[in-house]
Design a protein around this nucleic acid. Structure first.
Length: 236
DNA sequence: GCGACAG
DNA sequence: ATCTTGTCGC
């Protein structure tokens, strides 16, 4: 993937918030990716006390959801985890991983919020603007907004609202299991975003793209990059 | 001032 | 997010 040059992430929390309020204007919360052939999932992991972030991107065919590419990168960070500023901790590593992706996925799913964020710039939206591609946020917990419990069956949804506006959708990807919180990242409408998350799910709570990215980032972190070739051979 | 608070 | 074994429930 050809990644446009990004702004600096070397800043203080206060500066980060100012940057978010400036970048939020570049988010395009509408669109439809059209026919999708490749879909990607991105996630990051790290060891408890350390400041090394392991980012992973897994590209899978759609709608088969067969993994066809694994990319990863590790990057040092000094930015702490602060609710609302997640991108400043995981973003740099994720961008490095994306630069290594050879294929061209038409849409990317992130582990976290899109516009369902205090400043409408969750990690999916922020990365979407920097990558200039359609993105969707799939979070396991709510950061902001209110929502009612969706019905218990798979496919049930319930709108996430904030300030009397719908900012996302709670989606039950698996019957009787906690829902995931979907919100628009960039260049996509909520409707197709929700449709995509359900179509990319294979019986687990998390859709395959982010689920695979999560598993892969942990594999790289624990077994090291030296064993990745063997891992990829096994997975592919 | 108090509580909430993605990963 | 991560630290960790077994264990209760569908």
């Amino acid at each position: 993937m050809k990644i446009p040059a990004a702004h600096s992430f070397d800043c203080t929390p206060k500066e980060a918030i100012l940057l978010q309020e400036r970048l939020r204007r570049q988010v395009i919360p509408h669109g439809d990716p059209g026919v999708i052939h490749l879909i990607a999932g991105a996630d990051a992991s790290y060891a408890k006390g350390e400041d090394v972030i392991y980012a992973a991107v897994v590209v899978l065919t759609f709608p088969e959801l067969t993994p066809v590419e694994y990319a990863w990168a590790e990057a040092e960070t000094t930015f702490p985890y602060i609710p609302g500023l997640l991108t400043f901790r995981e973003g740099p590593a994720l961008l490095e991983a994306f630069r290594k992706v050879q294929s061209e996925p038409e849409v990317i799913l992130f582990d976290g919020q899109g516009i369902a964020h205090p400043r409408s710039l969750g990690i999916a939206s922020h990365m979407g603007v920097l990558l200039d591609r359609p993105t969707v946020g799939v979070a396991k917990r709510l950061l902001t907004g209110t929502v009612d419990e969706p019905a218990r069956d798979r496919g049930a949804t319930s709108p996430i609202t904030s300030r009397d506006e719908v900012i996302g959708m709670a989606v039950r990807t698996k019957s009787r299991v906690k829902p995931v919180y979907v919100s628009v990242g960039h260049r996509i409408d909520l409707k197709p975003a929700v449709r995509l998350v359900l179509a990319a799910d294979r019986g687990y709570r998390l859709p395959e793209p982010t689920r695979q990215a999560h598993l892969f980032s942990n594999t790289v972190r624990r077994h090291g990059g030296g064993s990745v070739k063997a891992v990829q051979t096994t997975l592919l």
